[in-house]
């Protein structure tokens, strides 16, 4: 056989698109969100993102070596995991806990299942779910956005010694003398005090929250760009958002003083980031077109159910993990009918 001639089955026409190119584009789309996060929360957010990414990459490198799979770091997928994980954590999250989250996410969520393409759930969310269960206090400690001097000093809890409790930030926050700071995110204020912050502030991200989930507007732009580049299945984010809005609408119509408006639901918390960048995880979401829509609606609705009736303030993380878990089932339910095959195959048995 002559060299350079490849004999293989169809498809013979391939798009010039490789895994690492897709992943690089996603990283590129995430960079503006990271930049805004650093602008908003300062050096602490920068260190947080660097730590999660570095630990995720190191973990991937170690497991790839240990399993003799060759270098899988260069496909960039693990960089996405690291960045996404960092973006979902509170800006003052102790770095050692962030490192634990990144290690658990990549090791337990990805490497144990066989690496990229085999992970059942989104690795970044596996890592976050682990630290949510392990360190519930640290992961719900919020610090104000746009603190003065955020580029000169770190949030005190960032540099907590490993295995130690996070350094309390209450005194530091009080020293900032920021008006109207209550130590809660807009979601928590809505949930427990039933006060909706101005939707424009929440939408553009001028609020407290996790490092990279505050600006719904910016995430929307980056996500749309990614969809325009055909790097994600736009059905998934759109149906997640539609599911959340549809679920929230009847409650808001019944009692607007108690329940959040659909608009607030869409722009607050981590829903936007999760819908565009996490639910659309190519490996862990259903492959069929109808399946993708069912999966998205399911995640959106579950998020609102957890937010409104669960003990937690934000539910999108668990909603996506559950969505990932039922993804294969949805895929098998929505298999397209083979052309020419009869529907009543059962009768012939």
């Amino acid at each position: 056989m002559a060299k350079g001639i490849e004999i293989r089955t169809s498809p013979h026409l391939k798009r010039v698109m490789s895994v690492d190119k897709i992943m690089r584009t996603v990283v590129l789309a995430l960079l503006p969100i990271c930049a805004f996060s650093v602008y908003q929360f300062g050096l602490s957010a920068l260190l947080l993102l660097t730590t999660t990414t570095a630990v995720a990459v190191l973990t991937e490198w170690f497991f790839a070596r240990a399993s003799g799979k060759g270098n899988t770091v260069s496909d960039w997928s693990v960089v996405i995991t690291g960045l996404l994980l960092g973006l979902t954590l509170p800006p003052g999250f102790p770095l050692w806990m962030a490192a634990v989250a990144a290690f658990v996410g990549v090791a337990l969520g990805k490497a144990l299942f066989g690496g990229l393409g085999y992970n059942v759930m989104n690795p970044a969310l596996v890592g976050r779910a682990f630290v949510q269960a392990a360190f519930p206090v640290a992961i719900t400690t919020w610090t104000p956005a746009f603190a003065p001097g955020r580029f000169a000093e770190l949030i005190p809890s960032t540099l907590t010694l490993p295995f130690m409790q996070p350094i309390p930030v209450a005194d530091w926050v009080a020293g900032l003398q920021m008006d109207g700071w209550t130590g809660a995110t807009p979601l928590a204020i809505q949930k427990f005090q039933h006060i909706e912050l101005p939707a424009s502030d929440v939408f553009t991200g001028m609020i407290a929250g996790s490092a990279g989930e505050t600006s719904a507007l910016l995430i929307l732009i980056c996500g749309l760009w990614l969809a325009w580049q055909r790097m994600l299945d736009i059905r998934i984010p759109l149906s997640v958002l539609a599911g959340a809005a549809l679920m929230a609408l009847p409650f808001w119509l019944l009692d607007p003083g108690h329940y959040p408006s659909p608009w607030f639901v869409l722009s607050s918390g981590g829903l936007m980031l999760a819908a565009w960048f996490m639910a659309s995880d190519m490996v862990a979401s259903p492959v069929t077109a109808r399946g993708a829509i069912i999966y998205g609606l399911f995640i959106g609705m579950l998020t609102v159910v957890i937010r409104l009736f669960g003990g937690l303030v934000e539910g999108v993380m668990y909603a996506i993990l559950i969505g990932n878990a039922v993804g294969p089932l949805i895929s098998s339910w929505t298999q397209p009918r083979v052309y020419g095959a009869t529907k009543k195959a059962k009768e012939s048995e």
């Binding site: 806990m97 269960a133 392990a134 360190f135 519930p136 130690m164 409790q165 996070p166």
Partner: peptide, 13 residues
Amino acid sequence: FPADFQPWIVMIL
């Protein structure tokens, strides 16, 4: 450990 050890609550769950 010293008094301000951070317990990993998930481990006893």
